[in-house]
Every structure is written in C-alpha cells, then in structure tokens.
Amino acid sequence: MAADSAVWREHGTPLVAGSDSGPLHGVRLAVKDVHAVEGHRLGAGNPEWLAEAQPQKAHSWAVRALLDAGADVTGIARSDEFAYSLDGTNAHYGTPPNPAAPGRVPGGSSSGPASAVALGEADAGLGSDTAGSIRVPSSYCGLYGLRPTHGLVPVTGMLPLAPSFDTVAWLARDAVTLARVGEVLLPAAPAEQQRPFHTALVAADLVALAEPEVRDAFGQAAAGLAERLDLRIEEVPTLGGDPAARAEAFASAQGAEVWECDGDWVSAHPGTLGPGVERRFARAASVTQEERAAAEDVVHRTARDLRAALPEDTVLLLPATCGPAPLTDEGPEHKDAGRQATFRLTCLASGAGLPCLVLPRMVVDGLPVGLAVIAGPGTDHALLELAVLSGA
C-alpha cells in the first residue's frame, strides 16, 4: 500500500538503514521534515521551500545519533509550515490522520511523526518543540512525548524557528521506547539529578485554562499519578503572573526570532504560506525592538520564578492542552480560541527552557488529552523514569 502523502513526504523500507547493532536496533523512526537527512532535501512543510532546497550533505545531529544507535529512518514525515503552528494542518499537503481521534487534527507542528506513530507505521517520532510542537500532538494522539531541557540535545542540522526556545524533541506510543530514545539523545545525568521526585505542584490558574471536562479529568489523573508514584500533591492558587500576559510576551519574543530566521525568505515569496501560518508571520514581522525587549524581560522573569518553584524533587502537573483535538473542519474562531488557551499552557516550559513530559493519562468524551509534567533543568532522565514507572 502506498504511503499516505499527508503523513509522509518520503517513505522507504527503510529510507535510511541504521547500524546493524545498538540499543535502538529495529526501531522504526519517523523524522519530521525539519531535520536534515543526508542525501534528501529538507522541506519545512512548504512546497516552494522544498523546490529551492538542495540535498543535505549530512544528517542532523539527532538523526545521526539515532542511526548510529541502530534505529532505521522509515521516512521523512510532514511538518506544519516552518514548524510555526500547533494545529497539525497543512494547506499544501493536507491533514495527517489522527487514529486516536478520527476526524480531528493530530496537532502540530510535529504532525507527521505523531500520525505515523499513532498509526503504527513508526515506533518513534523525531521532531522539534519550540512552543509545544511535540507536546500538543502527543496530547491529541494519545502518545508519550518529551521536550527536553533547552540546549541539552544539539540542534545541529535542524531548521531553526526561534533559537532561544527551539529543542529537538520526540514521541512514542509507549514510555519504554520514549526512554530508550532519550538514553541515546540525552547526555548522562549527574548523580544529583537522578533522585526521584517527591512533590507535585498543581496551580489552580493553570488548570483553569482547560475546558471544564478536562479539569475534571485532570484532577483524577493527577491524583492517580501521585498515588502510583508516591508523590505529595501541593495545590497553589498560582505560580505568579497572568497567564495571558505571559503568553503574549512569549509570542512576541518568539515572533521576533522567527522573523530573524525566516522573514527574508517569507518576504521574497509572497502568497506561499497557508492562511494561519501567514497570519503568524505577519504578527512576527510587526514586533518592534521595544516590544521585543519588554517581552523578553517578562519571559526571563517568568523563567526565574518557575525555576525557583521547582527544586530538584518537585514537578508541576498541568493539562498538556486545553482540550481534546479539534475537529478537522472546526471553525477558525473556535480553533483559534483553543489554540490560544493551549499556548498559555505550553509556553511556560518553553520560556523557562525546562523539560516537559506528556503522559497519555486522560480521556475526555472518548478522546485523549495529555497530562504534562514540568521539572527543573537537567532532570530529563528522571522524567523519563517517571514515565516508565507511571505505566508499569
């Protein structure tokens, strides 16, 4: 059967074979179309960009590491345009299916890898996460996902979006595979960062950003996770600051960097972007230097406050998204409102450069919603161990 072109840009059996041995031998990998794959073009989810692209001369750092560990690259999977979207739709190539929520979007911008993994066509998906691009599709598709500590995994050979917030990221159907990929991509953790977590913070103002049914499911999921892992839940009204103001500042700081990375190309290719991505680029182009400086000040202040609230034995629990995946044909007004609410949740870890794990532990009206776990910097291995124990 031919590969679904809404999921895969290129597909093979495999497309690139990994080493004959290694800890990931036999793992099938879907690579988001923002990572360089030697001998193949990088398409960034846009046909005009793809048409101008030349074959890559080397693999991205993450692709090379996973191939050396024995994983096979099954194919290059679709990305939302320039990875600048959380929806999982693409005006040029279509919407990858979401088998966990038929008729609904898979989430973006790592939409292709998420769809491939959820469909069983890959075991793990290598993507990126700047403002939620691995966490949102993990939530919508009922998958495990990890955005690592910023800067911990080299982004060499990965298309930049906003370098201050860009991370290599990955997802899988099960926690063990997620952790196996992490053992390859993450540096070894110092002994002091391998201690278990004891406290789980729950901030009421963050939970309130989710839809009512998600709030109800979250309370049960958080309590169940705490009981399973012997965590003490500490409920607080807020971590400080206004979620809407935080998100607005992050969007401005991110947008300024997005325009630095891609603005020249976008300006030279008018009319080549889908409507949602085009609006975001227009917003990015409008950020002034004064607005950027003020926004970055808010982002940095929020990061300091969040890091201070998360000592090494503490995690923050929150809904990964405000609700289940929207319908593919959802009206733009309703979809934008959901995206904004979800962005207020995802921008926290992004702005602070903190690792964030998504666990598929909630079901709302028969649809998956992820439980997000944010921890202090460099606790990535401990988060992966938490993921494995949560499903043991």
Rank of each mutant, 00 (worst) to 15 (best):
P377N: 12
W265T: 12
G127F: 03
T167C: 15
V168G: 03
A36W: 00
R64Q: 15
E234Y: 00
L327Y: 09
G120K: 05
A44Y: 01
R173A: 15
F197V: 03
P160E: 01
E10F: 03
A3P: 00
D129C: 02
T177F: 08
A169N: 12
L86D: 05
P196E: 07
R279P: 05
G26W: 01
A282I: 11
D242F: 04
D242I: 01
L178G: 12
F218R: 00
D33L: 00
V73R: 08
A114V: 02
D297E: 15
Q340G: 09
A341H: 11
L24A: 13
V34K: 00
G120P: 06
A303E: 04
V202H: 02
P102S: 04
R279G: 09
P196T: 08
W265F: 11
M1W: 10
S286D: 11
E52S: 08
S138M: 14
S350R: 10
E291W: 10
D72Y: 14
G45M: 03
A203W: 06
D305F: 01
G43E: 04
D72V: 15
G108K: 09
E81S: 14
A3D: 03
A118D: 04
G323L: 03
G338R: 15
P270Q: 06
P360V: 13
A175E: 15
L66M: 07
A51P: 10
P237S: 04
M1P: 12
S128T: 07
L146V: 08
S115V: 04
N46P: 12
P113V: 00
A325Q: 04
E291M: 11
G142L: 03
A179M: 13
L357H: 10
P237R: 05
A100F: 10
G271D: 06
V34I: 08
L171H: 10
T321I: 01
A320Q: 02
R173K: 15
A131V: 08
E257M: 10
H150T: 07
Q289M: 07
L66C: 09
V236A: 02
E235G: 01
L367S: 14
T95G: 05
S85F: 11
L316S: 00
V105P: 08
F197S: 03
T13C: 07
L367N: 13
A349R: 12
